[in-house]
Amino acid sequence: MNIAAQHIVDMLSVGGLYALMALGIGLIFGIMRLVNFAHGELVMIGGYAIWLIADLPGPLIVVLSLAIVAIFALAMERIAFRPLRDASPATLLVAAFAVSYFLQNLAMLIFGARPKPFTFADGLIENVVVFGLRVPQLQILSLVLTILALAGLALFLKRTRMGVQMRAAAQDFRMARLVGIPANRIIALAFLVSGILAWVVSLIYAAQIGQLSPTMGLQPVIIGFVATVIGGLGSLTGAAIGGFVVGCLSVGLQIMLPGDLREFREAFLFAALLLVLLVRPAGIVATSALKERV
């Protein structure tokens, strides 16, 4: 019983993290058909930003690291993606791959390839008992942060004018322009929001793995991609669902695989996801984003 509850908590927290990742990627794809590889590097930048300014007071760390990630998110749109706005999705994908690689190796150049310890969360490894469950503090904090971020995003998208505009733009960018939503501003805003999401992921993810490396964004971004494809490219709801599906599957495999196969978990995970795509090539929430017009 307790174990089952523990598993559910695990699935929710992992799934939530993946959903945050998938939403950040899905938002950009919906609006400009860009599969943003470099989203993972925003996570990496968030980690290093905190590490760099670790000696400042807490609130300042939060504000400054967020600002740094946001600036990078906006800058990559302005410098790399805006000149390519009319390019095909495949060209955009290659460009995003290049941006990702550029930032990864820039970090390598500046900070070196060796991982840096990320020790902020070390005080949080102790278990606390909640509703009869022994849960690490860090997991509780992660879960709370994830829920706050998801709720915040939902509120922003539902309740604010800009949020509604952004959803509209993600559904039909051209029509959105025709009802007076300015293209440049809404794209910049989308990158800003995806930057904030990446920053939240970086807090949680860096604390969980306990170290920083230039390539740390890779794992989450690949998971995020697959989650958006599984959920249905072009749908924000789909991205969130896809994140949770991948999270549950990942935790489920961890539980169910026998010990000696556990280290192959990732292979099983991706193979399972490919199978899902075979059954539903357009994802769980199919949109017209990928539909061929004859």
Partner: peptide, 18 residues
């Protein structure tokens, strides 16, 4: 038509309001 299908009716209206 090209209404925004996933937005509510009220949101569709609010978005074009100026």
């Amino acid at each position: 038509r090209q209404v925004f299908p996933a937005l509510t009716v009220a949101e569709n209206l609010a978005i074009g309001a100026r």
